[in-house]
């Protein structure tokens, strides 16, 4: 009886270890995507709000494509496109992981851009005017007056995207990258059991509960005013 429990524990430990390694890759994708897409999203938001008709149309098209096509297709497109579009001699193969990060960053930047824009446009004109007559420069106004207010407003929407990102990391399996989902699928195939998939679900849940907690904390910190 004890031997059985010992075996089960050993198996469980091994499972957690395997899934843990996969989860680390998922986290790598998660953090790299956030690091690139959040600032890029701001640039895209400005492009979208630009009065220049050329910039505006290009950016609107970009946002349309990024939000309007499945991320999984975008990942494949970025990975395979160079091989197909460049002439035979110029074969440049992008590294799988790099292709994935590029696709994720572009895709999420479009979503963040629209969230930022919604937040920025919801700030009343009066705030800009009051800052202007007090002598603040446009840059000062944006970072000291507008951004703090925008952050508070867009926090719930941002948390949506971040939580979705944690789960979207599974899509890189399409390039054969071994992250949490793929590790679970492989283990499930090896032991002919669905337990690894279930445990993977728990891993995702755990990661997202940390994300949720962090956003709750930030929201609380910003609740000093209404």
């Amino acid at each position: 009886m004890l031997e059985n429990i010992d075996n089960i524990l050993q198996d469980l430990f091994r499972l957690f270890r395997l899934l843990g390694i996969g989860a680390l890759t998922s986290l790598k994708i998660f953090f790299l995507t956030l690091i690139f897409s959040m600032p890029l999203g701001l640039a895209v938001a400005f492009g979208r709000m630009s009065k220049n008709k050329l910039i505006n149309s290009i950016v609107r098209f970009f946002i349309l494509v990024m939000r309007g096509t499945p991320l999984i297709l975008q990942i494949m497109f970025i990975y395979y496109a160079p091989s197909f579009m460049l002439p035979e001699g110029m074969k440049i193969n992008i590294d799988r992981f790099v292709a994935a990060i590029i696709a994720f960053s572009l895709n999420y930047s479009a979503y963040f851009a629209e969230i930022y824009r919604g937040g920025i446009e919801s700030i009343s004109q009066g705030q800009y005017e009051a800052a202007a007559v007090l002598g603040f420069t446009k840059v000062q106004t944006f970072f000291k007056i507008i951004v703090p207010q925008v952050i508070k407003r867009i926090l719930p929407s941002i948390s949506n995207e971040v939580i979705t990102l944690v789960k979207d990391t599974a899509l890189v399996t399409t390039l054969g990258i071994s992250e949490l989902y793929r590790a679970a699928k492989n283990e499930a195939a090896r032991v002919f059991s669905t337990v690894p998939l279930f445990v993977a679900g728990l891993f995702y849940l755990f990661m997202n509960s940390i994300v949720t907690k962090i956003f709750d904390k930030i929201e609380k910190k910003l609740s000093y005013y209404r």
């Binding site: 494949m76 395979y80 193969n93 054969g176 793929r182």
Partner: peptide, 16 residues
């Protein structure tokens, strides 16, 4: 190199 089974021909033809 692990790949997605649906994409095997793509992976082969693109030299990956």
């Amino acid at each position: 190199q692990p790949i997605n089974w649906d994409a095997k021909e793509q992976e082969l033809n693109t030299g990956n």
